[in-house]
Write a protein that binds this DNA or RNA. Structure first.
Length: 586
RNA sequence: GCCCUCGUAGCUCAGCAGGAUAGAGCAAUCGCCUCCUAAGCGAUAGGUCACAGGUUCGACUCCUGUCGAGGGCACCA
């Protein structure tokens, strides 16, 4: 509907430009807004106010000229000029009545568009290190990323979802070593577990698997493992050096093959768990991209060579540095360490280079807010390589701060003290968790009150919206049970019977759906959709409480039933975009 | 110290590229089920949009500064 008004105003503007009232270059897509107050009609535009200066006239006069050029249409009941120069448009009731059969025939396609024109967009999200199960902090990125991807797809983009698997690097070595040490304990070795090791129960589980399947084949004397290793932190040593020493010792005592086996075992078990977890959360990927594959394919070295050829690298203190300060970063960054290992940053350069080379028109990274310092250096690298950084958008998701019993919870994968996404899902359900996560702007710090989310009370708006859907289903259930007939063809119904203000309110909300989806998608703000659905559900509940649908008057009954069928369709479409189910019964 | 994000009702948050009297939900008070699911609806009350300047026809929205909250500033990933 908004689109249609926009077209009309655009035509009028072009007319004005053609007759020289306003300069040709002042013509642009007019801003059409929903009015806040129904006294001002359905839509309003400030076009006359914006263009008054260029036209060397006052806004009200220009508004009148614009109205004179407006093409005739049966959409508009009337148009009027208000206060400082707004033009208010009031739609005809037939414009609204046409909406119902239109929604019902479009069905699940209502709200979708081809705005994106099939442009290829990659959305990378979650990408948590496979060193432990996902926790509730990752949940927000998962819900947000997948909904953004769905929204973009709904408005016509060709979306590719990707998870970047950090399957190389020191953190993974720490995990492998942690598993091995727990395994040694299962072999009845006595040892003090390193302060910096992964202490979660899942490490015991993986160790137990190793022990069950391979007996003592990986056993070593604990004394020989710890002999000569630097002291751990509480004992006056350095915990980082301690764990690094243990990693080296593990590699040395187990040998390449056996070490690799433990490493892979941990990686695969955890990655499977993450995959399973996300899939049960309704989050699926087109691709799981391995960091290690970048090293193995030579892509990392290639990226470094490209930087070297562009004269962006220099050596200092045995390490190879990238001049990121030349491109706005705070300081230069190491790409190859003095021990010859490439850094995580080097992989990331290669990864982003690869993303752009794969031909995406747009690349979206959804990162935790703690990575924000990382953006300038990635963009710096891409600029240095001569790539187009405007194709890259980084969306930062703030952490969810967890509360339980009014108290803040601290989380750390390392210490094993965390609430997993799996636990959250089991306690509050995937529907509530997803809706809850996506209800807030991503850059907004979020308080996630576990007790509240678990309470399953009406505080949680997901139930409110789902309930509206279930209620509509129930009405048709009743109609069937009581054998109440109704017209099945939406275009054969007289919508002139819908004269109640509640019905008009509902129709207006239904008309807003495509605008909401478009706006949510283009601004990457799923919360707009959750707020919309809440309002739509509210319109329905109000209507439900005031008027009966299964009335004696069959023409009125038909009109009302088609209206709530259309409402059900929109509720379904919206919930579906959020990855939340639309139950028929509650 | 520098850099991000945020600061709107008692609490949790909206406010759509600045636009017409600041909006919801919880919580509070008061009403509504012989009637399609009360996981619902209605009503009342509650705000100097952190503070101070600036930009203009007009600022919660843009700019600057101050104060406050969270996060980030590794040869970690």
């Amino acid at each position: 509907m908004k689109k249609q008004i926009e077209q009309l105003v655009m035509t009028a503007l072009q007319q004005l430009a053609a007759t020289g009232v306003i300069p040709q270059d002042a013509v642009s897509r007019p801003k059409i807004e929903r009015t806040r107050d129904s006294k001002h009609g359905d839509f309003a535009t400030n076009a006359a106010m914006v263009l008054a200066k260029a036209a060397r006239t006052n806004p009200r006069e220009l508004a009148q000229l614009l109205l004179d050029e407006l093409p005739s249409t049966d959409l508009l009941e009337h148009c009027e000029i208000a206060a400082p120069g707004f033009i208010n448009f009031t739609l005809t009731s037939t414009a609204y009545h046409r909406l119902i059969p239109s929604i019902l025939s479009l069905s699940h396609r209502y709200g979708r568009s081809d705005l994106g024109n099939g442009k290829r967009v990659q959305v990378e999200f979650v990408s948590a290190n496979p060193t432990g199960p996902l926790h509730v902090g990752h949940g927000r990125g998962a819900a947000y990323g997948s909904v953004v991807a769905d929204l973009l797809k709904a408005v016509g983009f060709d979306v590719h979802r990707e998870y970047y698997v950090n399957d190389a690097g020191r953190q993974m070595d720490i995990l492998a070593t942690s598993i091995w040490l727990r395994y040694l304990e299962l072999c009845d070795e006595t040892l003090t577990f390193p302060a910096n090791g992964y202490k979660g129960d899942y490490v015991w589980d993986i160790a137990a698997t190793l022990h069950r399947d391979h007996g003592e084949a990986y056993q070593q004397d604990a004394l020989s493992v710890f002999e000569g290793i630097e002291e751990d932190e509480p004992d006056g040593g350095d915990k980082e050096a301690h764990i690094d020493g243990l990693i080296e010792r593990a590699k040395q005592l187990l040998g390449d093959n056996r070490y690799r086996f433990v490493f892979e075992l941990g990686l695969n078990i955890i990655l499977d768990d993450i995959r399973d977890d996300l899939s049960l959360f309704g989050v699926n990927y087109d691709e799981w991209y391995s960091e290690r594959s970048l090293t193995e394919s030579g892509a990392v070295n290639q990226a470094i060579e490209r930087l070297r050829n562009n004269n962006q690298l220099y050596e200092k203190a045995g390490a190879l540095w990238f001049r990121s300060t030349d491109f706005g970063d705070e300081k230069d960054r190491v790409v190859v360490r003095d021990n010859g290992q490439t850094t995580y940053f080097a992989s990331d350069i290669a990864y982003h280079m690869d993303k752009l080379e794969r031909g995406f028109d747009r690349v979206i990274d959804v990162w935790g807010a703690d990575h924000h310092g990382y953006i300038p250096r990635v963009k710096a690298a891409l600029t240095a390589l001569g790539d187009d950084t405007s194709k890259l958008d980084v969306l930062l998701v703030q952490f969810a701060i967890l509360y339980r019993g009014g108290e803040k919870l601290q989380m750390s994968t390392r210490s094993g003290q965390f609430v997993t996404l799996r636990e959250l899902r089991k306690e509050v359900g995937a529907d509530a968790a997803r809706f809850f996560y996506v209800m807030r702007k991503c850059e907004q710090h979020m308080d996630f009150d576990l007790d509240l989310a678990k309470s399953q009370s009406s505080d949680n708006p997901v139930y409110y919206v789902q309930y509206a859907h279930a209620r509509i289903c129930s009405v048709f259930q009743q109609a069937a049970e009581q054998k109440i007939p109704f017209e099945n063809d939406p275009s054969a119904v007289d919508y002139g019977r819908l004269s109640e203000s509640h019905e008009q309110a509902l129709l207006t909300s239904l008309a807003k759906y495509p605008e909401t989806v478009e706006s949510s998608a283009l601004s990457e703000e799923p919360h707009q959709l959750t707020h919309y659905l809440r309002e739509l559900a509210n319109d329905f509940h109000t209507y439900y409480n005031t008027h009966k649908f299964l009335v004696e008057d069959s023409a009125l009954r038909d009109a009302r039933l088609q209206l709530i069928l259309a409402t059900r369709q929109v509720l379904r479409n919206g919930l579906n975009l959020l990855g939340v189910s639309a139950p028929e019964k509650m």
